[in-house]
């Protein structure tokens, strides 16, 4: 028996919005420690790694480890049926063919359940090696989404350069060029509005706008986003998910041919 109950059910709705355009299907791996999902996009350019810790759920029971293959478009359709304030429970038997989503209104007067067929997916899991990043930028998630959207008008790539002075986002194309520079915040009252930079060495890499814009679908999950960069390593874009976990996106850079 597997059962995971989350009073803040809207988190699940936001997670699906954050992955459904990038991934068509994925395996949800459930165990004692919680729920994880790892999947590459179809073109194998990026990797999504989601982690939801069991202690972050209001109720969590997992008698046996199980892997549930799901079509994320179908799962998203079902989660759209949940209200923003609904309590969401995910339930499955051991060795399941189906998974059940139960939505309860806050006052307990409405309860709906949706059963979805599972898929047998034979997906590769990748080893994500530990690394010390050369640059780690923390900034407001909404600001990052805005910059990616704005610069996407100029070309299909964004260059992210990070130095002691700050972080610079650049794009160029047929209509011209664009640069957005952010300095490290000197004095912030609200932590979530701060821009902070931890730098070992300056870096500058080129990334595809298309994927960055997919990643920013996670913006509603978190006030801040963390961008981590190193030579010979993919960009990591991380959004914390309340006190339950995080979603990380890894993106391979564009390199000189």
């Amino acid at each position: 028996m597997f059962e995971a109950r989350l009073a803040k059910g809207a988190i699940f709705k936001k997670i699906l919005e954050a992955v459904k355009d990038l991934l068509t299907e994925a395996s949800w791996d459930c165990g004692d420690m919680g729920i994880t999902l790892q999947a590459m996009d179809n073109a194998h350019v990026s990797l999504v790694s989601l982690n939801l810790r069991s202690d972050g759920f209001d109720k969590y029971r997992c008698d046996r480890n199980l892997t549930m293959g799901m079509n994320l478009g179908s799962m998203s359709k079902i989660l759209k049926c949940a209200g923003n304030d609904d309590i969401v429970t995910i339930r499955a038997q051991d060795n399941p063919d189906t998974v059940t989503f139960v939505f309860e209104s806050e006052n307990g007067e409405k309860q709906s359940d949706y059963e979805m067929k599972l898929m047998s997916l034979d997906l590769e899991h990748l080893q994500i090696p530990e690394t010390e990043y050369a640059c780690v930028v923390k900034m407001p998630a909404g600001e990052f989404a805005r910059i990616c959207r704005d610069l996407s008008q100029f070309g299909d790539s964004i260059v992210i350069s990070c130095s002691k002075q700050g972080v610079k986002f650049s794009a160029s194309g047929d209509i011209g060029s664009a640069n957005v520079k952010l300095a490290q915040s000197s004095n912030v009252d609200k932590e979530e509005e701060a821009v902070t930079i931890e730098m070992q060495e300056p870096v500058s890499f080129t990334y595809a706008c298309r994927y960055l814009n997919f990643f920013t679908k996670a913006t509603p999950l978190s006030a801040q986003v963390k961008l981590s960069m190193s030579p010979e390593y993919p960009l990591m874009v991380e959004y914390a998910i309340d006190d339950i976990g995080q979603i990380r996106y890894f993106l391979a850079p564009k390199i000189e041919d």
């Binding site: 590459m40 073109a43 194998h44 350019v45 990026s46 990797l47 590769e124 899991h125 990748l126 080893q127 994500i128 090696p129 790539s157 080129t206 595809a208 010979e232 390593y233 993919p234 890894f250 993106l251 391979a252 850079p253 564009k254 390199i255 000189e256 041919d257």
Partner: peptide, 14 residues
């Protein structure tokens, strides 16, 4: 000229 790298050139299969 730049080209898009694949994620598997950085992360290997488990």
């Amino acid at each position: 000229k730049v080209k898009q790298a694949g994620i598997m050139s950085f992360f290997k299969k488990k």
